[in-house]
């Protein structure tokens, strides 16, 4: 980073392509590696992390170039500049990850726990009142279960300012845990086990998860009627789809 000084920055600002290329050598590979590592903490595989990071990186570099050339970024030395560039890149990575979550992860792993759409929510919740049996029985393996547990925890974190939604997610987590505990040998004390330990002793071949049963469990646990549950599920989906932090309620 020795060459990266005020003079270098001015040249880049003036549109010097050589300075831009030198920047590439000095900084971009490191920052790109940071971006891939950042995304890898959220995705299940390297190639997806690389894809998201590449997109975030392109956006961040173009944004940074524009800001530098427009004089919107002041030079206060190399470390503050690198930190600024890294923070813009992290911001772009988060945008990409939220987009990815909306498009893939939530639908992949959370759908057993939140219905596919509002109409299904409504129909499912109404069916509870009519006493109809639910055809929705989902079987999950260990990895899928751990992915769901992680996603539920992430959803709970994102909704943490909305207590009523947190209550719903905690109920979903409890219901899921109950389903798994039911499959464990009766002599095993599962009470203090974390999820990883629990899944070691559970007989997942016997695991059955019933969405209608879960809705009933939530209603009874929270003492709410079907309309309230419908509204909360709808709100939960809106937050997860928009991936905004929920406001206080």
């Amino acid at each position: 980073m020795a060459d990266f000084d005020d003079d270098f920055f001015r040249k880049w600002q003036a549109g010097d392509d050589e300075a831009r290329n030198r920047m590439w050598e000095l900084l971009w590979h490191k920052l790109y590696t940071v971006a891939v590592r950042f995304c890898r903490g959220f995705t299940r595989n390297d190639s997806m992390a690389e894809e998201l990071a590449a997109e975030a990186f392109t956006q961040a570099v173009l944004e940074l170039n524009e800001k530098v050339r427009a004089g919107e970024v002041e030079w206060r030395g190399a470390p503050p500049f690198v930190a600024y560039a890294r923070n813009r890149l992290i911001f772009r990575c988060r945008s990409q990850l939220r987009k990815h979550w909306r498009e893939h992860q939530r639908s992949d792993a959370l759908d057993p726990f939140t219905a596919d759409g509002e109409e299904e929510d409504q129909a499912l919740i109404e069916s509870l009142d009519s006493g109809e049996a639910s055809p929705d029985v989902t079987l999950l393996d260990r990895d899928s279960l751990l992915a769901v547990v992680t996603l539920l925890a992430a959803a709970r974190e994102m909704c943490r300012r909305a207590k009523k939604l947190v209550e719903v997610i905690v109920c979903i987590e409890s219901y899921l845990r109950q389903c798994v505990v039911r499959t464990a040998p009766p002599e095993v004390d599962t009470l203090a086990m974390d999820w990883e330990e629990l899944l070691e002793v559970a007989e997942l071949g016997e695991l059955k998860f019933d969405k209608a049963e879960m809705y009933e469990f939530i209603r009874q646990s929270l003492g709410i009627d079907r309309n309230a549950l419908y509204l909360r599920m709808k709100r939960l989906r809106e937050i997860l789809d928009g991936l905004r932090e929920a406001e206080n309620d």
Binding site: F91, R94, A153, A154, W195
Partner: peptide
């Protein structure tokens, strides 16, 4: 673990200062 990982992920997705 799975729960703590999810909590950190959810937090980072909604918190720029911690992400930085």
């Amino acid at each position: 673990g799975a729960v703590a990982t999810g909590e950190v992920q959810g937090h980072l997705l909604t918190c720029q200062p911690c992400s930085e």
